[in-house]
């Protein structure tokens, strides 16, 4: 057993409603860049809760979870602030990462590309066993039977045979299930999933979302899921955090945010979705494109693309509560009270 594993073993039954994971004030930049790619981001997930982080490419959502897993190369990224709390373990991300004994067991991660994140040279079973043996120190035979049980649990038919197959023998959806099985093998309290369904077809995506929902209900783990698809958010999330340009611009319970969207970016994203209503009509757009990190404006980073921007937007709006548990970072929220559109 790894030497620091023992003192980390706390009771898996946390009081319900407590924060299984809490990230506070993470700021980080890449060496040579003038601006932070992640700017004062705080996220938290209670046990049994699914938090979706939604945003477009380059909004810093993946970098955020890479940082909290300690997966960023320390020589190219500078973390200037950030505190991570998992259970009762607290880590100052500026000079520490989550202990190795916790990564992969208490906190597990599923990556986006099931095609590239499995090692093509090893059998599925060996790859799952590796994480089990690493964290619990059991014998291989025991680990294998645990691996088989995990495959069964994520809905893979014929698990005893699949254990001895290589990744190339599996389809994309099955590989993603294997990734999930691997992440769940050590009963994590927190599962971090980076676009777990993006590479998959919609019928397979529905199966994987069903699986994640089932696991949340049966194990009570908390899930942080990164996605760019608002449909997926509506389908699976309890709470949602919308990111733009490395900042959280809005967060809250999913129904509340969808029924009462406050930030112009959230409103823009929702109305830009080609959907089932108003076919054929022109879609509302978010004008322009995301500025590069070097060209990020001061203050509200969305202001260069925002139709409602004004002078005050050069000052960064604080993320403040506008409705119970619903925070937004916009000087003009709620919009209808502060702006008028004519013409």
């Amino acid at each position: 057993m790894p030497k620091d594993a023992k003192d980390l073993q706390i009771s898996p039954q946390e009081p319900p409603g407590s924060c299984a994971m809490e990230l506070a004030g993470l700021s980080l930049r890449f060496r040579g860049q003038p601006n932070d790619v992640v700017d004062d981001v705080s996220l938290s997930a209670k046990s049994g809760e699914v938090l979706c982080v939604v945003g477009e490419s380059g909004c810093g959502k993946s970098v955020t979870v890479m940082a909290l897993m300690g997966l960023l190369p320390p020589d190219s990224s500078i973390i200037s602030s950030g505190n991570l709390k998992v259970g009762d373990k607290e880590v100052d991300l500026r000079h520490d990462t989550l202990p190795r004994a916790m990564r992969g067991s208490r906190v597990a991660m599923v990556f986006q590309e099931p095609m590239t994140s499995l090692n093509p040279a090893f059998r599925i079973g060996d790859q799952i066993c590796e994480t089990i043996i690493r964290h619990s120190g059991v014998l291989r035979r025991e680990a294998l039977s645990r691996a088989e049980e995990m495959l069964q649990r994520v809905g893979i038919a014929n698990p005893s045979q699949r254990l001895f197959e290589y990744p190339h023998q599996l389809s994309g959806g099955m590989r993603q299930r294997v990734m999930i099985a691997m992440a769940l093998a050590n009963d994590p309290q927190v599962l971090i999933a980076d676009e777990p369904t993006t590479a998959l077809d919609v019928t397979i995506q529905a199966q994987i979302l069903d699986l994640i929902r089932d696991l949340r209900d049966t194990t009570g783990m908390s899930t942080i899921m990164i996605t760019h698809d608002l449909g997926v958010v509506a389908e699976i999330a309890d709470r949602v955090a919308v990111m733009y340009g490395g900042q959280v611009v809005e967060q809250g319970p999913v129904r509340e945010v969808f029924d009462n969207p406050q930030h112009p970016y959230t409103i823009g994203l929702m109305s830009a979705m080609p959907g089932l209503d108003r076919p054929g009509e022109r879609l509302a757009i978010v004008p322009g494109t995301v500025p590069t990190i070097a060209n990020m404006p001061e203050g509200c980073r969305f202001r260069t693309r925002c139709a409602f921007a004004a002078g005050i937007c050069a000052q960064r709006p604080p993320l403040s509560e506008i409705a119970p548990q619903h925070d937004v970072a916009c000087h003009f929220a709620p919009l209808e009270d502060s702006v008028e559109v004519t013409g």
């Binding site: 823009g268 109305s271 509302a284 409602f308 005050i312 003009f332 009270d337 502060s338 559109v341």
Partner: peptide
Amino acid sequence: YRAATEGGTVTHKTH
């Protein structure tokens, strides 16, 4: 939002 992005004039009431 749609009105503002499609060329409407935005006036701010508060600020």
